[in-house]
């Protein structure tokens, strides 16, 4: 630690420094870090970042050493011809060569990262403040979801990105760089995950009051498991109909905006809730998926998510909201257990 601080700090300060460094290093790994790559593009860009960082540190150290030498040397000054030569080499020729190397490296990278995807395509539409996700299978079948994307490891999956209202930006830092979602335009991004795991994506373009509350969950699965999951979702599972929650959901007009396959609810304004019980979070990646959080979100929507188009359903009693939440979060027949956050440590 004394090396990092540059002086011998008093003991409490050392502890503070160590804690600070641990905190900084903790930010380098994790499910939303570009420095902990889990995808092809992120790895290539991450390598480029480290090379540039190391080279910059070396150049900075050399410049500092030069300035130290210049300010501390004694004796005859250099001849202006020798000084001009140093300026020409270190100030013009070397930077030009380094920039040329970086430019060629970057330009060679670009076509490689834009190579087309394989069979599966996923359409993602950005809206204030959530993501509509549609898996487009090669045979034309569509599987609807929202705020969660599952991907097969080792395949190049193409994302077709659009926006409904304002500009958003789709960014999953461990997998790739960001790509804007622009109303009236279709952008493309290809993700090639290299290891399985759960990651977090975020909207990276300011899009309104709840911009910071617009995240999404990414789960990279083994190709076989992914294929099995997708096949099982080709026909949406039937919801349990035995509960009061279904009746309350429909009676309160939720179905005007939300779709729950197998019921009369077929709205397209808000997220498709058919597979809600499988998602690790609710409200676009901001709350762990459990009944308590869902009750609270239904009754206080606009307090939790300012500017959301869904009104707060404060007129529902906690019991009624709990009934709806319980119905929505009951695992659908055919789903292999829930993937809710409260089911995992």
């Amino acid at each position: 630690m004394t090396i990092v601080l540059g002086f011998s700090a008093p003991r409490p300060l050392r502890g503070l420094g160590a804690a600070g460094l641990a905190l900084i290093l903790a930010g380098c790994s994790g499910r939303q870090s570009a420095l902990d790559p889990a995808g092809h593009e992120a790895r290539v860009v991450g390598d480029l970042f480290w090379w540039m960082l190391i080279a910059s540190v070396v150049i900075w150290a050399l410049v500092m050493a030069f300035s130290f030498y210049a300010s501390h040397r004694r004796g005859e000054p250099w001849s202006s011809r020798a000084a001009a030569r140093v300026i020409l080499i270190c100030g013009a020729i070397l930077p030009t060569l380094l920039l040329a190397i970086l430019l060629v490296f970057g330009l060679r990278l670009m076509p490689m990262l834009r190579a087309p995807g394989e069979e599966l395509r996923i359409a993602v539409e950005g809206q204030q403040f959530w993501w509509r996700v549609t898996y487009e299978l090669p045979d034309g079948t569509r599987v609807s979801s929202a705020n969660e994307v599952r991907l097969p490891r080792g395949r190049r999956t193409e994302f077709v990105l659009t926006a409904q209202d304002v500009i958003h930006s789709f960014w999953v830092p461990p997998l790739a760089g960001k790509m804007d979602l622009i109303p009236g335009m279709t952008n493309r991004l290809v993700l090639e995950p290299e290891r399985t795991g759960r990651f977090r994506g975020a909207c990276a373009e300011f899009c309104g009051a709840s911009h910071a509350l617009m995240a999404l969950d990414i789960e990279v699965m083994e190709p076989d498991a992914f294929e099995a999951w997708l096949q099982s979702r080709r026909t949406p599972p039937a919801p349990p109909r035995t509960e009061d929650g279904a009746a309350l959901f429909l009676a309160n007009g939720c179905g005007a905006c939300h779709t729950v396959a197998g019921t009369e609810a077929a709205g397209r304004v808000g997220p498709d809730l058919t597979l809600l019980s499988e998602r690790p979070s609710i409200a676009a990646g901001i709350l762990p998926n459990n009944t308590d959080n869902l009750v609270s979100f239904i009754r206080n929507t606009r307090d939790i998510k300012p500017g959301a188009r869904m009104p707060s359903f404060a007129m529902l009693s906690p019991e009624q909201a709990a009934s709806i939440a319980h119905w929505l979060l009951t695992p659908r027949s055919g789903t292999a257990g829930t993937r809710r956050a409260d089911a995992t440590p």
Binding site: L99, L107, M110, P111, R114
Partner: peptide
């Protein structure tokens, strides 16, 4: 002139490294 010379080369480089209209 030296600056412009290098810049002209840098501007021409993508034509030989990016080979399609994507």
């Amino acid at each position: 002139s030296a600056l412009s010379f290098v810049s002209v080369i840098f501007i021409a480089l993508p034509a030989f490294l990016i080979l399609d209209c994507r």
